[in-house]
Simulated scan of single mutants.
Amino acid sequence: MNESEQTCPFCKSQIDPQAVVCPQCNAVKGFKTRNGMRSKAYVMAYAVLLGAVSVFICVLMVQLSPAAPLMWGMAVMALTSAFGGFVTFREASSGPHWYKGT
């Protein structure tokens, strides 16, 4: 294998290291979301925005009514959403992965 090539994990063919689609099996290299393939910048921005908005909602709910159980429940849901944003951010930070159509 040449240093300037990479191997497709699905069909094992040698492809250009800059390629985002395998010419042999059409596998795609990128970040998969529920809405299809996205760029790293899109996934990172989504994760940061989700986390920031969730933490803001959590702080706002606790400040408005710190004693109300419903507000604490909403704050827990907001923190759970923030955790989802963190997990998404971490996955995007690990780099793109190869995906094959279903």
Rank of each mutant, 00 (worst) to 15 (best):
Q6D: 06
M1E: 03
M74A: 14
G30P: 02
M74L: 15
I15F: 07
V20G: 04
Q63Y: 01
I57G: 07
P96T: 01
A67G: 06
S94A: 15
P23H: 09
F83W: 10
L49H: 12
V48N: 05
A52M: 13
C58N: 01
P66G: 09
Q18G: 07
A19Q: 07
M61V: 04
Q14N: 11
N35H: 13
P96C: 03
K100W: 08
G36I: 09
P66H: 02
P17L: 11
K29T: 01
Q14F: 12
F83V: 10
F89H: 14
G85D: 02
N2E: 12
E91D: 15
V48R: 10
E3Q: 09
Y99W: 15
K100D: 04
A47R: 05
I15A: 03
K32T: 02
F10G: 10
T7P: 00
T102Q: 08
E5H: 07
G36M: 05
L70F: 03
Q24E: 14
E5F: 10
E5L: 14
S93Y: 01
L70K: 02
A67V: 10
H97V: 09
V87N: 10
T102M: 04
L64N: 11
V48H: 03
G95M: 04
V20T: 15
V43W: 02
V53L: 14
L49Y: 11
G85K: 07
R34V: 04
F10E: 13
Y99Q: 08
C25Q: 09
I57C: 14
W98S: 01
T88G: 06
M44I: 15
F86G: 08
A82C: 12
Q6V: 13
L70R: 00
C22I: 14
S39W: 07
K100L: 15
F10R: 11
G36A: 10
V28S: 08
F89N: 06
F83Q: 06
A47M: 05
Q14Y: 09
C11Q: 10
A45Q: 15
E3V: 05
G36Q: 12
G73N: 00
F86I: 10
R38M: 08
F31I: 03
S54F: 06
S65H: 06
Y42T: 09
K32S: 09
D16I: 05
C25S: 09
P69I: 11
Q18H: 08
K12P: 00
W72T: 11
V21W: 05
M77Q: 09
M71H: 12
N26R: 14
W98A: 04
P23K: 07
V20W: 05
R38D: 08
G101R: 11
V21P: 03
I15H: 04
A82W: 07
P69A: 12
G84A: 10
F56G: 14
H97T: 05
S93D: 05
Y42V: 14
G30S: 07
F89C: 09
V76C: 08
S13N: 12
V62Q: 02
W72H: 13
L70W: 06
W72F: 08
